[in-house]
Every structure is written in structure tokens, then in C-alpha cells.
Nucleic acid binder design. Sequence first.
RNA 1: GCCGGAGUAGCUCAGCCGGUUAGAGCGAGCGUCUCAUAAGCGCUAGGUCGGCGGUUCGAGUCCGCCCUCCGGCACCA
Length: 681
Amino acid sequence: MPRFFLTTAIDYVNSRPHLGTAYEKITADVIARFARMRGLDTLFVMGNDEHSQNVFRKAREMGLDPVAYCDRMEDEFRGVWRALDISFDDFVRTTEARHRVAVERIVQRMYEAGDVYEGAYEGWYCVSCEAFKQEKDLVEGLCPVHRTRPEWIREKNYFFRLSKYTQPLRDHFAAHPEFLQPDVRRNEILRLLEGGLEDISISRAGQAWGIALPFDPQSVVYVWVDALINYITAVGYGQDEERFRTWWPADLHVIGKDITRFHCVIWPAMLMSAGEALPRQVYGHGWVHFRGEKMSKSLGTAVEPLDAVGKFGPDPLRLFLVKEIPYGGDGDFSWERFEERYNADLANNLGNLVSRVAAMVDRYRGGRLQARGGGALAGLAASARAQALDAMTRFALHEAVAAAYAVIGATNEFIAQAEPWVLAKSPDKASHLDEVLYEAAEATRIASALLWPVMPDSVAEILRRLGHPFDPRAPRFDDTQWIASGERHVIKAEALWPRLDTTGATPVPVRTSVTDPSTPVPEFVPGPAPTPASAEQATPPAIPAADAAAAPATPAPAPAAAEPQAPTSVPADDRLGIDEFMRLDLRVARVLEAERVPKSKKLVKMRIDVGSEERTIVAGIAEAYEPEALVGRTIAIVANLKPAKLMGIESNGMVLAASPEGGKPELLSFVDPPAPGTRIR
RNA sequence: GCCGGAGUAGCUCAGCCGGUUAGAGCGAGCGUCUCAUAAGCGCUAGGUCGGCGGUUCGAGUCCGCCCUCCGGCACCA
């Protein structure tokens, strides 16, 4: 039997699952279920990413053994996946023994291939980001993302010769245009490859939480690298050769668009180095925004999927996410929109159709129907079936759903035209009524069956009512064909999806989840599988030796920015002493001249008066301020910063401005401007 | 700034290799049946297809320039 092996990104355990994470799992689940329907021997794997320093820390804070903490989180994740009806077959935890074996094996192979070499790294390291920072990445000596002081570390690192695989990767992309989809993401990677790749660090020294390098037990595999390997762990790499040969390479890695680089550059290069085949395809889905905004836990907009699921079960949410968001692009979720779609798609259309068909068959024929060939609707159902199949092979999940809905709409029209209630009044139309009823029922059944991968539970119920249930454990795509023989016993039952009152008079049962204040916001969320919604505009932390080209390929803990920690809740041990604060030389300054830095988007070069002297300072505020408007203005600066070059201009100091997440900076200003040079403290 | 994508009815979007009166769904308005969850069905949107110019017998549909938005990268010290 043909096989189909797909995976989703594994999740960073410190960050609870939310709508964005759920979206990835749901769409992957739809793909997996469809594959099973088509008779493919399907293996669908997910998992948790646990070897993060933050996980270790968090566990300690809670007074737990790290593994015990991860056990707890696993339960939580599994609980959510269960509630969402995600049919994964295996769940890989990176702390499992089988994963350690796989990691050791592939790293050893890479080492033996001569692709791993020893080097030293010295520099800043932000524990929260779990990434190296270059001096230029720091703001006021702090990690720009976490506002925490990075550690200066000096350690032995092992590097992977990623550079060596630049050309092989280019060739692979050229030979396999389908390797990375959708095209937008593919273009980005192609461009990255054009620029060439740099080697990357794949280890950390002096840490216990992680998997030791087989050739140097003092070092641990860098968490991002560790995480990617889960895909082969799942199929027995290093443990069960036969199983591995049976399933690898994976047919599809479903991931968020922010981590395409890891999956389309680093991961394939690792596999090439180890002499293994590359996954056939990687699909980078988009984000699910909330009311047009990126989701943010601290803003209370990280929608808890369970909120929707709690009231309606998983299917309405699953349908919404799959039907409303063209797969591959970003989408938007709002409760208003959700309710609108619920009423239109489920209550008014599919649900009502099932009700009216069942009611008529029950009333006019005692629930009995004789199967027979169909008319125009049968033709439409057949073409919808073909369209759905075609759409699914392109991962155009929304199109597949639309095809099924075309049949639902047509069936409603058909009923209105045929007017079974009129036929029922004339005994001589009995035969015609039989035909009409069956045609409507069968078209409804087919449309529903096509939706099974999206709404497995609801569809199973619909099929039961329509008298031709299929085994939910072994649904068959063949069942979406018109059945012309046999007898049906149709069951009339209560409404599947009662209409929601959206007039506003009645509070809707669903609500927006606001992060439970008692739940500490995770410090940070790296992990190879940052959830889409949480991966906002984070700055990819650089891996040592990696800059220009490689930096982008660096495991960018995008989520960092996604979880803007409540600014007030600074961990106690990260607070500063007054002496430390006093080291900052904050001064009042006056802008003498200001001009935009040519060819830059946000830089403004200013000549400022700091009382004792004049100096040049460059600030990234061009998007918020016109240079002319700055002249004469009194601002606040950090005066004792080391000089830095920006676009070739040396900047001596930094202007202070409020910088909202994703918004424009607002300069600090004074109601009654003090003299330039005045100390601020 | 560079690269890529997008800009079509109130909303969300289809419109392939250029060709009759530019479409769908939702919302809204009107009408209507009554099997059904006050659901369904029908009709209604007169939209400069972002703007300007060009190619062509003919252009949302191709070319050039411009504007706006999004994403990635390059500078947010």
C-alpha cells in the first residue's frame, strides 16, 4: 500500500497551545485524514520540543525535575490535541531515549562526513532567546527582545559546514520546485541560497540539559538542531533500520512560515551530510491573526482554541480555519466572523440541509429510501469529488471544502425546484418523489463525506443519519461516489448546529480568551517549532560564525517578540541594583541638525548638543519623524554607549523613545525642556 | 533601499495561456415557497478591475512608470 508520512513542527513546551498552534495541527490533520481516506498507509507525527534552557529553568522555578515538568506539559498538549480531534499516530518528545539515539546517530554521521569541526565562540548569549547575540544586536547592553542582560560566554563550539551545501541545496531546489511551497516562501529561500551560506554552530558547551555530542560528551547539541531531528526519530532512525527505510523520506513537513529556513536549508543539509534522502515536501503555512492583529498573549488576544471547542466541539472551528483561510496565506479570526460562518455554513446550509432531507424522508417515506441513479446532482457531485481530490493534492484545503459546499448549495436549490412537498400531495407523483428524495439525500451524503477530513465527528453523525455511515477508522474516498443500489434508512434527529443569535441581544456563548493572569507568561518561546501566531517579527538571533547569509538560516526564535512579556513582571533576579543603573549616563540633548540617512528606511542622522559637546547620533526613527521636525527638539539620550557604525555612520549614543511592539517609536520629550547636558536619572 | 507578493462589488476572495454584457460566497434590501434550524429559493450591488501611459482589432488579463499594503533581507546602538 502506498505510504504517506507527514509531520508538523514540534512544539516548545513552555508556550501553551493557542489558536495559531492549533491551526497548524488542524490543517495537517485534514491532510492526514484525507490521505487515509484515499487508502494511503499514513503516518502522522507531532511532538514536543523540550531541550530548551528555558524549559530547564522553568522546571527549576517550579521545583520540578525537568522531565517531570515536560511530562506535565505533554499532558496539557495532548489534551488540547484530543479536544481538537487531531489524529496523530505518534508523538515525539525530544527527551525520549529513542530521540537521543537518533540525534547521536545523525550527528555522528555528519561528523564522520567531515562536516563538523571544532571552533571557539566568544560573545553574548541570551538565555531567553537561546541564541548568540552580536554586540550590534544588543540594546543598552541588553537583549533587545527580552530586555535581559545576555551572558558573556566563551566556549568551545562545533560548527556544521553548512556552506558546503550551498550548491547542493541550490541544485535540489532547481530539480524539485515542489520541495518548498507555497512559492512565496520558496522565493525567499532561493534568494537566501543565492547569497551563499555560512557555517553554523550546532553545539553548546557546559550544559547538562540536552543531548551530548557522541564525539564530545562535554558539549550538547544545539536545541534547534536537536529539534529538527525528531522527524527521523519518529521512524526509527538509528534504532529500527527497517522501519526507517519503510517510512523515510517524509512526504510532507507542515510548518509555520517563519521556520522554513530551518526546514529547507539546515535540515536538508544535515540529511545530505548524513547521506539520507530529503523530505519530499515542506509546506509553510501562514499565520492566523486575531481581528487583523497578530496574536499576542500579553494583549489577551491569544485565542484559546479550547474556548471555541468547549462550546461547539472541534468541528466548527476546524471548518472555519480550513474553509476561510486560503492555505498558505495568512488568515484572520474574529468571533464575529466565526459566528457568521457558523450560521451560514453549518446552521443554514449543511445542518439545515440534513434536517430537511431527513424530515422529508421520514415524513413522506417513513425513513426508507431505495437507492437509484441520480440526475444532474449526481454529475455535480462527481465533479466536486474530482475537484476536491485535485485541490487536496495541491494542499488547497479551502478549495476542497468549497467543492463540497458547491454540492450543498446545489442540493438546496434542487429541493426548492423539485418541491417534494408538492409531489407528496399527489399519489401519482410517488415515483418522482422517490427519485427526488434519494437524489437530495445522496448528494448530501457525498458532500458530507467529502468534508470528513475537516469535520470527522460531525460527518460521521450525518452519515449515520443518512443511512450510509462509514467506519470512522477506515473512511474511504470511494464512498464519495454515487451509490445507486441498496436501501437507506434515514433518521430524523435534532439540529446538529442550532443557529446562533447574533443580534447582540443574547451574549454569544463563545468568548475571547484572555490570558489567565495566574498563568505566568512564558519567558520565551524558541523551539524549532515556534507556533505561527507567536512568531511575530522577532529578530533572528545570530548563530556564531553565521551572519549575512547564515543568520537568516538561524533558528530564529521568532516567538520571542510574540510573547512580549508583561514588562512589569521582571524576574526578581534580573533586577538591577541602583549602582548598575547609575552606570547609564542618560542626558538631555538638543537636536541641531537632522537628516535622513540615504538609502535607509528608518535611520536619521542627527547632530546634537549634549551641553559639553556636540556629537553625531544615528537613530531608527525615520518612519515616525521627519528630520526637519526634529531640529530644535529636546530629546533624551544614552550618552555613554560605545560608538557603533550604522550604514557607515558612527553613532555616539542612542536616543530614547517608547517603542511599541510593531508600532512607531515615540521620542521622549519634555514639557519644560531642560538645558542640554542635564543628567537624567 | 533591494527582492518577492498583493491591490477586482460593504466584507472575504475567483478570474488559466488577452476576446461577447467582470464573477462567487457572506452581509444588506426586496420578493417567495413551507420540507427544514425565522432556515431555503429568486431578484437586487450599476464595482474608474490602485493610478498613468503603451502594445493590440480587442487588456483586471501583456509591457513600462508611479502609488499603497504585506512579507523577507539590509541599518532600528
